[in-house]
Each structure stands twice: as structure tokens, then as C-alpha cells.
């Protein structure tokens, strides 16, 4: 079980000011919970690559953003991840919906190839990542945030299951 309120508590603990996101299956239950948060700015984008540049701009303006996208969108975002998030050394917490992870973990055929390529791609970019599967794992979100600040690079928290109410 992974509850939105537990995630939001972690984001607040990190001092996150803005959530930049494009909805996906793993994070759809976050939507209402985030909308209800008065202290968090909420910036929807049309394609995941935008999220990295919006986040970089927020950071340049002195804010502390997080991006919330799916692994499929991570693949689309290659050049802006390279040139903007990594190129400007933005200490960015990336929460990434890990489509297909549970099937892959169980040894079943995933819905598509998204899960297969996720960790190899992150390793290729040199981006550290952490698996978030249950509420017990959510402390890793604050750890990932702290790591991003320390190394001044993006760090991924991989949301391995759908959030549930």
C-alpha cells in the first residue's frame, strides 16, 4: 500500500515548493491530494520533457521543485534531461512511475517494454535511483532528495506501484 498523504508528508519534509507533473497510472491517486495542498504549487505540463525545464527554471528562481512523471515520459525527455537537468547540475528529485515493475519483479511478461529499459537508462545517465513500493519505503524519498542536494544532480524515486486511497 502506498498512500498519497504519506508521499505528500515526505515532500513537505523536504521543503518542496512546487510539483511539476503529467498524470500517469502510478500517480493518478495523487491528483486530488495534491490539488488540496495549499502550500504546494502545482504545474501541469503537456509532455514530460517540459517538466525538467520548468523545474530547472523554478530552481533558478530559488524554488525547490519535484517532478512527477512516468518512465515512458522519462524516455521522451532524454535531451532536456541531458542538457538542462544534468547540464545545469540541478539538484532535482524526480518521482517516476515505474510502469511494468511489479509484473517484471514477479517474473511475468510486462505490459510493454517500459520496465525493461528504466533502470538501464538511469544507469546510463548516471542517475541514482531508489525503489518505493510501500509506505514503509517513503523515507527513501527524503533520502533521494538529500542525495540530489549533496551531489547536485537529479536523483530518482521510482514509484513501483499505484498509489492507493
Amino acid at each position: 500500500m502506498l498512500q498519497p498523504k504519506t508521499i505528500i508528508e515526505q515532500l513537505k519534509k523536504c521543503g518542496i515548493t512546487h510539483v511539476v507533473w503529467l498524470p500517469d497510472s502510478e500517480s493518478k491517486f495523487m491528483y486530488d491530494a495534491l490539488q488540496a495542498e495549499q502550500d504546494l504549487g502545482f504545474i501541469p505540463v503537456c509532455r514530460e520533457g517540459e517538466a525538467f525545464a520548468v523545474a530547472a527554471g523554478l530552481w533558478m528562481g530559488g524554488k525547490t521543485p519535484v517532478i512527477l512523471i512516468q518512465n515512458t515520459g522519462l524516455f521522451e525527455s532524454g535531451d532536456v534531461l541531458r542538457g538542462t537537468a544534468l547540464g545545469l547540475e540541478v539538484p532535482l528529485l524526480m518521482m517516476i512511475g515505474y510502469r511494468g515493475y511489479m509484473e517484471m519483479k514477479a517474473g511475468k511478461q510486462p505490459f510493454d517494454t517500459a520496465a525493461v529499459y528504466t533502470e538501464p537508462i538511469l544507469n546510463t545517465w548516471g542517475i541514482p535511483f531508489h525503489h518505493i513500493e510501500t509506505d514503509a519505503d517513503t523515507a527513501k524519498i527524503a533520502e533521494a532528495f538529500k542525495q540530489a542536494q549533496e551531489i547536485s544532480r537529479p536523483v530518482a524515486a521510482l514509484i513501483c506501484v499505484e498509489y492507493n486511497e
Binding site: I43, V45, A53, V54, A56, G57, G61, D79, G83, G87
Partner: peptide, 23 residues
């Protein structure tokens, strides 16, 4: 000023959106 050479191609307006919201 920020002159973005070598950053994500096509993504300057999104960066500007972030700066505008922040400031």
C-alpha cells in the same frame, strides 16, 4: 541574463515558465 547554449533543445519557454512562477 541567461543565455542557454547546449541545454535541452526547444525547452527554453518551459524554463522561462519556471522562472516566471518562481519570481
Amino acid at each position: 541574463d541567461f543565455n542557454a547554449i547546449g541545454t535541452g533543445m526547444g525547452h527554453l519557454p518551459d524554463m522561462a515558465l519556471g522562472v516566471a512562477v518562481a519570481c
